[in-house]
Design a protein around this nucleic acid. Structure first.
Lengths: 166, 166
DNA sequence: AAGTTCATTCATTTTAAATTGAACATTAAT
DNA sequence: ATTAATGTTCAATTTAAAATGAATGAACTT
C-alpha cells in the first residue's frame, strides 16, 4: 500500500531500501539496475553470498546474476571469497570508495576518453586535408578546444583518485 | 559502404563526424543521443542555428529538437542569441568546459546526491528503530560508510569545478 | 479577429538496453 | 565413465528510454 519495493522474496524492508539506494546510484552511472541490486544485497549482507543466493533472494535470473557479477568483478567492486566448502564461489563487496571509483574510472571512463581522443585525431587530420576551406580555421579552433578538454580530464582523473585515496 | 553515419541531410562528412563525437560523449553521461546531435551541430556551426535548422539538418523531429534544446538550456550548454530578425530564436553553444561541467553537476549530480542523502537519513532512522537486532551494529557501520562517501563527493565537486575554472 | 509563424506538449511508436532461461560448458564426486 | 552441482552464454523476450508528429499554445501581423 505504501512502498514501491518488490518484496517477492525474503528481503527485509531495510534490505530492500538499501538495495533501492544502490539501484539509484548505479543508474546515475549508466549501469543496469541488476548491478545495483547485486551490489546492494552484498553490501547489506554480513556474510558472503553465492550466485544462487543472489538469484533466490533478489528474484533475478541466473543469467542476470552471472553477468552482473562479471561486471562487478571487472569493476573491482566485488571479490571472490575463498569458499572453503565445495566449488561454489562466494562473493563479498569491496566497500572502499577509492577502489570503486578507481575501477569505474579504469573500466568506464578511460576507454571512452581514449576512443574520443582517437576520433579527435582523425578529425584533426580531416581539417588538415581540407582545401582552402573558409571554415577550416574555425574548425581547427573548435577541435583544439576539444583537445584541451580531454587534456584536462586526463589531469583531473588522478587528482580525483588521489583525493579519494584518503 | 564504409561509414556508419546517416547522411540523409546536407551534413558534410566532417560535420557528421563531429556530431558522432558528441553523441558518444553525451551517451557516456547518460543523456539521449539527440542531445549530442544538437549540441554537436551547434558546436561545428559558425553561425547560430534555429530549431528549424536543427530539424532540417539533423533530420530529427521538431519534438526531439524542442526537448533537446530545453535540456541543453537547463544544463547551460546552449544559449539563445538575440535573433534580431523576427521572433525566431537562434542558439549557439556554450563552449566553456567550466560552465558545461558546472551545469552538469548542478542539474544532474547534485540532485541525485541530495536524494541519496535523504534516503540515507531514512535508513539510519530505520536502524535506530530496530529492536535489539543482532545485525544493527553491522548495518550502522555500513550506513556510516555511505555517509562518508557522500561527504567526500560534496567536498570533491567544488574541487573539480575550481580545477576546471582555469 | 483571423491568419501566420514558431515553439511546446504529450500520447503513440520506435529503438535500444536489460533480462530471461534453456542449452551448453566445466569441474568435482562417485 | 556417469552423474550431480555450479556457472556461463546467447537468442529470444521483456522493459525502459527516446523519438515522433499531430494537436495545442503563444506571439506577432495585417
Amino acid at each position: 500500500m505504501s512502498g514501491e519495493v518488490e518484496a517477492k522474496t525474503g528481503l527485509s524492508e531495510f534490505e530492500a531500501q538499501v538495495i533501492g539506494f544502490f539501484c539509484d546510484g548505479v543508474r546515475m552511472l549508466g549501469l543496469p539496475k541488476s548491478i545495483g541490486e547485486i551490489y546492494g544485497l552484498l553490501y547489506v549482507s554480513q556474510e558472503a553470498l553465492s550466485l544462487d543466493d543472489l538469484v533466490s533472494r533478489l528474484g533475478i535470473s541466473k543469467g542476470s546474476a552471472s553477468q552482473g557479477l562479471r561486471s562487478l568483478r571487472e569493476l573491482g567492486a566485488v571479490r571472490e571469497v575463498e569458499g572453503v566448502v565445495g566449488r561454489r564461489v562466494y562473493y563479498e563487496p569491496d566497500v572502499e570508495l577509492k577502489r570503486l571509483v578507481g575501477g569505474f574510472i579504469k573500466e568506464q571512463v578511460r576507454p571512452h576518453l581514449a576512443s574520443g581522443e582517437e576520433k579527435l585525431a582523425k578529425l584533426k587530420s580531416m581539417v588538415r586535408e581540407m582545401p582552402g576551406n573558409a571554415k577550416s580555421d574555425f574548425y581547427a579552433g573548435r577541435l583544439e578546444r576539444l583537445g584541451r578538454w580531454s587534456k584536462r580530464a586526463r589531469i583531473l582523473l588522478p587528482i580525483i583518485q588521489k583525493f579519494l585515496g584518503r
